[in-house]
């Protein structure tokens, strides 16, 4: 069932001089899956994710995202993915609707579709009244929800989330993960990095990166059984504890 895989990674590496940020990783992500991409700081998660978003070129190996090769078809991939960075990155001096309209327009949506879908989206987010509010005056939790909604507004095949819930309160985090699961149910694949191990439990499958390599990859339950522990937190300690690299990538 090769067709079901929306991300296929084969022996992907990225070196900076002698430093192997990503060292020969291989994995697949299925359509509609919530895939947790875990690892300690400096393990190479962000570097790997940047390659999959066609932001940086691999040193060796190959990867296919949404059916296209990251080395030869970066723009085809970019049109088919959504991305939400760990740094809030909507325009603060544009209103809620203007941000939605801008990114909808960038992805080539029709003006009429933008208008209609934006109204539906704002209603779902319960932000209809904030339509013309400048984004900078929204609370952080709302901003994150909005950023996520904008990232999937153009109906991408895959959405990449880079530590989306940093600095957000537990209630908003839960609400955020409900949104993620709802999104995955519509067939959009979610590729998410996080440091919260309780969030890892929501994922269909998780991979754990250590020193640029994938040290473990399975469903959260299988990993817990394998390491004979109760929570993903303990799995993380057992695997990431062996890391030789510290922070500072």
């Amino acid at each position: 069932m090769e067709n079901d895989n929306v991300i296929i990674v084969r022996h992907l590496s990225k070196h900076f001089g002698n430093f192997k940020a990503v060292d020969n990783i291989s994995f697949e992500v299925k359509k509609g899956e919530v895939f947790g991409f875990l690892g300690a700081n400096g393990a190479g998660k962000t570097t790997a994710m940047k390659m999959l978003c066609a932001l940086s070129k691999p040193t060796s190996g190959s990867a296919f995202v949404a059916g296209y090769d990251i080395s030869t078809n970066p723009n085809k991939i970019k049109a088919r993915i959504g991305y939400m960075s760990q740094k809030f990155s909507l325009y603060e001096d544009l209103s809620v609707f203007e941000n939605i309209k801008l990114f909808g327009g960038i992805y080539g949506m029709k003006r009429k579709d933008i208008e209609n879908n934006a109204n539906i989206l704002l209603e779902r987010l319960e932000m209809t009244e904030e339509r013309n509010t400048m984004v900078k005056s929204l609370p952080l939790g709302w901003k994150q929800k909005l950023a996520f909604s904008v990232a999937v507004f153009h109906q991408p095949q895959i959405v990449f989330l880079d530590e989306p819930t940093g600095g957000v309160d537990p209630i908003t985090r839960r609400r955020f993960w409900e949104m993620i699961c709802e999104t995955a149910a519509t067939g959009i694949t979610v590729f998410v990095t996080t440091h919260y191990m309780d969030e890892a439990e929501y994922c269909n499958r998780v991979s754990l990166m250590v020193d640029g390599q994938i040290a473990a990859l399975d469903t959260p339950n299988a990993l817990k059984t394998q390491f004979n522990v109760q929570s993903m937190e303990e799995v993380f300690f057992q695997i990431a504890g062996k890391a030789k690299r510290g922070e500072g990538l």
């Binding site: 978003c53 066609a54 932001l55 723009n75 993915i81 960075s85 990155s89 960038i106």
Partner: peptide, 12 residues
């Protein structure tokens, strides 16, 4: 501000 990163992942 990091906005350029968001633009870079779009097909623009």
């Amino acid at each position: 501000s990091g906005n350029i990163e968001q633009i870079n992942v779009t097909p623009v």
